[in-house]
């Protein structure tokens, strides 16, 4: 029996650091809320931690903060939150995780995976990764943050294929919901 992809969502549920208690592959009907997945199926935060966000859609997707967990999941609602269904993965992030670090993790992946054909993706992912490093090392200023935003826009708008167009998404979505984590790292 085939599964109707528009009605069901099969997702690998994972946690960074401690994340949720239950991880693994689950299948839920469209319209399930993120809270149901995280708290009921995932069993809530493991080890007394507090969950602050989930990342959906893999390295080209984005994060959803805890205060939007009551959103019923479908293609459009995720898009409205600045992320996507993408690969279908959901990674649960607890308070131990720094969102800038997470963005850097995904940018490193894109930097290694870019084919190198078009200029914005080939060189932009390298530069974005370096700016994120600078921020995490506490060496960045407001000017670097501005540069990070400008370059994220450029890579997203001008890249040739989906890899480059999606690469800045983790930065843009963490900036949208967790800009304070970036600001607190600036000097």
């Amino acid at each position: 029996m085939g599964i109707n992809a528009s009605k069901y969502w099969t997702l690998p549920l994972k946690g960074i650091n401690l994340g949720v208690q239950n991880t693994g592959l689950i299948e839920v009907p469209m319209g399930t809320t993120i809270r149901q997945i995280v708290e009921q199926m995932g069993g809530g935060a493991s080890n007394q931690g507090k969950i602050k966000a989930v990342q959906t859609g893999g390295p080209s997707g984005g994060c959803i903060p805890e205060n939007a967990f009551d959103t019923a999941i479908d293609y459009d609602s995720l898009k409205a939150l600045g992320t996507m269904m993408g690969s279908g993965g959901m990674i649960v992030i607890d308070e131990e995780t720094n969102m800038v670090d997470m963005a850097r993790f995904y940018m490193e992946f894109c930097r290694d995976e870019t084919c190198g054909k078009c200029v914005p993706c080939r060189t932009g992912t390298v530069q974005l990764y370096q700016i994120l490093n600078k921020i995490i090392n506490g060496e960045a200023t407001q000017a670097d943050l501005t540069k990070l935003k400008q370059l994220s826009y450029l890579v997203k708008a001008t890249s040739l294929c989906g890899l480059g167009q999606g690469a800045p998404n983790p930065i843009l979505s963490t900036l949208r919901y967790f800009e304070d984590e970036y600001l607190s790292l600036l000097k």
Binding site: R111, D112, E113, T114, G116, R122, T123
Partner: peptide, 8 residues
Amino acid sequence: VAFRGENA
């Protein structure tokens, strides 16, 4: 063109 990304 050989190699990929920044090493192309």
